[in-house]
Structure formats: structure tokens, C-alpha cells
């Protein structure tokens, strides 16, 4: 199995050779064909998502977080790479591993953490928990049913098309979801109707506890796009810049009303499907360690430091700011009341 995974990583290096030529000009920074602001935004999001999940795991382990937790740790480069492209009015479909998306989309940390703790002040009044958050102020939603958001994305895409303008839909999903019938039905519809949807697959190689190679006829989910006459791209999901660039092209197509695109990001979760599962039974510690060597919180930071986008003091400042934001949100959440008996009759 380890051999298989290492092969997958080797293949990735061919998709994105490091020798890529990058243009430098006065508006752009270092070896990146990107603005400094965007690079820092991506880095901040990576740090925020990592620190937030680590804190939540700490609370869960201490028995202070109700329900379950599906950690995003390891996959941060994907959402962080998407984040600069997302506008407030765009629709966003997240997954059960979805906490990260809602925060990046603009859900305030306070009401977000309060929701995870089941508090009345939560973004959904404590009714949704980590898997089911919907924040319609920023048009982000999610589902605990794997593959259920494909058709919802089609509905959002139809709405964008009927409304006119350049509003679009981001639909994230895992490799396992691509085996659902809704994937086939909805990608076909999206393509036939030229809907402005960016489908982003976070291929972390496992559907819950089962390796994709045991359940999935293709090793690249992107290959499936050809069945819907839909363009696709495979990128290294541990490299936020690769994600940013590929998703950027897809976003441009969608905003110009040229149709949907599928971007597959090869990524990895360090923890189990949910925190506390016995992942040693279905994957090796060596495999996990091999992926951790490519950790975006380390590799991307080093790249930015080397290129002069970040300085050690800026890193410290960003980390400190995020730490205090999380602390503030936790304090707010813990001090918030739980829903009362009367509250259960609201919104019916």
C-alpha cells in the first residue's frame, strides 16, 4: 500500500514540475506570479485551519466537544488555495469534513465555534453541529450525506444562470463521493446546461476507512470528467499555489459562463476519518509520515520565507493573531447558553 501511495506522489511531481517559469514584475512578489496580499491570505488560512482543528481535537479529546469530529488536518492547502477566488455572493458546498470551508467563506469564528459546541449563539442555533453548517449570510452550506451536495450545486448553478451576472458555485467533495449516483447525474446536468460550477475533488485516497483503489475504477477522479465532456485538471493538493492556479482557471471559465470544470487535488488527511478511528488498521504509519513531510504549514511557509513574502516576525504576528482569535471564539462559545426547551419550537 505504501508503495502505491509513494507512486501516487511521484506521479504528482510530474503534474507540477518545480521548474515552472514564473514571471517577475514590480507588482508581483519573489518567485510567484501572484500578489503578496493573496499569498499572505493563503498562508493565514492554512495556519488558521490547522490551529483551529488542533484546538478542536484537544477539546474533543478532553471530552469538551460534543458529537464527532472529522479533522481537516493535512488538507488545508486545498481550501486555502481556493480561498482568494471566493466572493461573498458565491455559493459554496462543503462536505462533512467541512468546517474549514465555512470559516474561509466568512463565517465569524465566534458563532462557528459556538455551533460546534451546540450553543444557542451558534451560526445555526446549535442545531447543525460540525457536519451540517449552513451560513446563508455568505451562501455556504454542507451535508452529512456524502454526494448530496452535487445536485444542490446544480440548483445553485441554475439560480446563477437564471439571475444573470457572474455569480458562481464552488462544490467541494471527496474521492468517495465520486462513486455516488448523484455525481454522475449532476455533472451531466451541469455540463449539458453549461452551469457556472467549479467542482473541486479533494482526493485524500480513502473513503472513510477504505482505500480508493479497492472501490474506485480510476485512480484519477478527474478522468471521470471526460464522460461529461467537462474539462478537468489534476493538481498537487499539498501545494496551495497549484490549487490556486488551477481553480483560478476554472473560476474564470465559470464567471464567463463557459461551463463547469473539475479540479482534482491530490491530498491527504493525517488523522482518521473521524478523530479516534483506528487508522492503523487500514494504512501504515510510514505512509502518513511520508505525506507529513510535504505538510503545507511547513513547506509553504519555507517557500514564502525564502522568497521574502514572509518574515519571521510576520509569521509570529500572524500566529499570535490567530491564536487570540481562536481563544476569543472559544471563550465566547463556552460562556454562551445552550438551547432551551422553548427554543426547539422555533423556525417550524
Amino acid at each position: 500500500m505504501l508503495e502505491f501511495k509513494l507512486l501516487a506522489m511521484k506521479k504528482l511531481n510530474n503534474y507540477h514540475p518545480k521548474s515552472k517559469v514564473r514571471v517577475k514584475n514590480k507588482n508581483l512578489i519573489g518567485g510567484f506570479n501572484m500578489e503578496k496580499e493573496i499569498l499572505i491570505k493563503i498562508y493565514q488560512n492554512i495556519v488558521l485551519l490547522r490551529k483551529l482543528d488542533e484546538k478542536l481535537i484537544e477539546l474533543f479529546t478532553a471530552g469538551k466537544l460534543p458529537g464527532w469530529i472529522h479533522p481537516y488536518v493535512g488538507q488545508e492547502a486545498v481550501v486555502a488555495g481556493i480561498s482568494p477566488h471566493v466572493r461573498k455572493e458565491d455559493f459554496f458546498c462543503a462536505t462533512h469534513r467541512g468546517r474549514a470551508f465555512h470559516v474561509v467563506k466568512g463565517t465569524p469564528l465566534r458563532s462557528f465555534v459556538a455551533e460546534l459546541l451546540g450553543k444557542k449563539t451558534g451560526v445555526n442555533k446549535g442545531r447543525a453541529g460540525e457536519m451540517h453548517i449552513t451560513n446563508w449570510e455568505v451562501y455556504s452550506t454542507s451535508s452529512g450525506i456524502v454526494g448530496a451536495t452535487f445536485p444542490m450545486a446544480v440548483g445553485f448553478g441554475l439560480a446563477c444562470k437564471l439571475e444573470g451576472g457572474d455569480r458562481i458555485v464552488f462544490c467541494t467533495f471527496g474521492d468517495g463521493a465520486s462513486n455516488r449516483g448523484t455525481f454522475h447525474e449532476s455533472l451531466n446536468m451541469a455540463s449539458v446546461w453549461k452551469l457556472p460550477i467549479v467542482f473541486i475533488c479533494e482526493n485524500n485516497l480513502y473513503a472513510q476507512f477504505t482505500p480508493s483503489r479497492l472501490t474506485t475504477a480510476v485512480s484519477d477522479i478527474a478522468q471521470r470528467a471526460s464522460a461529461y465532456n467537462m474539462p478537468s485538471k489534476i493538481v498537487d493538493g499539498m501545494d496551495p499555489i497549484a490549487v490556486y492556479e488551477a481553480v483560478g482557471e476554472a473560476v474564470e471559465r465559470a464567471r464567463k459562463r463557459e461551463g463547469p470544470t473539475l479540479v482534482e487535488c491530490k491530498t491527504y488527511r493525517y488523522h482518521g476519518h473521524f478523530y479516534g478511528d483506528k487508522w492503523e488498521t487500514y494504512r501504515s504509519p510510514e505512509e502518513v509520515e511520508a505525506w507529513k513531510k510535504r505538510d503545507p504549514t511547513v513547506t509553504f511557509k519555507e517557500r514564502l520565507l525564502k522568497e521574502g513574502v514572509l518574515t519571521e516576525s510576520l509569521v509570529k504576528e500572524i500566529e499570535g493573531r490567530i491564536d487570540s482569535q481562536i481563544e476569543d471564539a472559544l471563550k465566547f462559545a463556552f460562556e454562551s447558553p445552550e438551547p432551551s426547551l422553548e427554543d426547539i419550537y422555533e423556525d417550524l
Binding site: P151, M152, V154, L158, T182
Partner: peptide, 10 residues
């Protein structure tokens, strides 16, 4: 399934 799912989105 996707017709009704799309209706939910709409």
C-alpha cells in the same frame, strides 16, 4: 435524485 436535489438548491 438530482432533479429534486437541484430543486432544493434552487
Amino acid at each position: 435524485e438530482s432533479i429534486i436535489g437541484a430543486c432544493v438548491g434552487l
